[in-house]
Simulated scan of single mutants.
Amino acid sequence: MEKLNQLRNLLRPTSTLLAGAGGEPCRGLATFLREPRRRFSTESEQREDATVDNFFETPDTGAAYRKLLGITKQTLKSDVINLLDECKLSLDDIRVNYDRSFAPIGMLVQFRSRHEIDRAFKLINRKGRLHKLERVDRSQWEFTTNYDGKTLLLQGLPRQAIPEDIERFLSGCQYDPSSIQLFYRQGFPDPIRMATVSFPSRAQAMNAFIAKNRGFCLNNQISVRVLQ
């Protein structure tokens, strides 16, 4: 008999189950059951990401920007073009992001659309490289200097070096004398004297690099690098 009563309780109408202790309907539970089922998914997060992406896009051209992380000092723009070969990038679509000591910390890439960014993600995953694309806005792209392979960085200059000493060091090379900039950067144990010099073309900058790297300026051996 007791089992029969338990069976009756299980078969009671839904309205009975919604009632409270005093027989009053449990409004909270009833409302919950009447409401459409909420979507506990990442849909809202995706919409938020899409809103952020729209903010970072250039409205008139649809261009979008990302920073490629995981590069080394030896990574060239051409390496990035080969890595993302299906995105049809050019040298003008890539700018190297240097820190104050001119160590490369990433490469800014200009894509024509978000579709190209999706393709870049797939290429990186498929090729198994230890790279990552990080979202950046257009202002970071515009404020990043594009040296374009036409600027040399001279490192290890003597403390007493002046622009005329740099001109003597670069004797025989075609460059812009007015572009010479001398400065210090933090080093160990002493700050390092550096200079940047601009050249009319990539070829002339590369020729100067080949001819002058490890040359001497006032008895100091100078390290020369091409800034991309």
Rank of each mutant, 00 (worst) to 15 (best):
K3S: 15
K3H: 14
L4I: 09
N5S: 02
L7I: 11
R12E: 13
R12C: 02
S15R: 06
A19D: 14
A21V: 15
A21W: 12
E24A: 12
P25K: 12
T31S: 12
F32R: 12
R34P: 01
R38I: 08
E43R: 15
E45R: 13
T58S: 07
T58L: 05
T61R: 00
A64I: 15
A64D: 00
L68A: 13
L69Y: 09
I71Q: 09
L76P: 10
S78V: 05
V80P: 03
L83R: 02
L89G: 05
L89Q: 02
S90H: 01
L91Y: 11
Y98Q: 00
D99W: 02
I105E: 07
V109E: 00
E116Y: 14
I117G: 04
F121Y: 15
L123C: 12
N125P: 00
N125S: 11
R126T: 11
H131V: 07
K132E: 00
E134T: 08
E134L: 11
R135W: 14
D137Y: 07
D137M: 07
N146R: 15
D148V: 04
G149E: 00
K150M: 08
T151V: 13
L153Q: 07
G156M: 03
L157H: 01
Q160F: 07
D165R: 02
F169I: 10
Q174V: 14
Y175T: 05
S179V: 04
I180T: 01
F183K: 06
F183G: 01
D190Y: 08
P191V: 00
R193L: 09
R193D: 03
A195D: 04
P200D: 04
S201K: 10
R202A: 02
R202S: 10
R202L: 02
M206A: 13
N207M: 10
A208G: 06
F209N: 08
F209M: 09
A211G: 09
A211D: 15
K212N: 10
K212M: 07
G215Q: 02
C217D: 01
N219F: 03
V224D: 11
L227D: 03
Q228W: 12
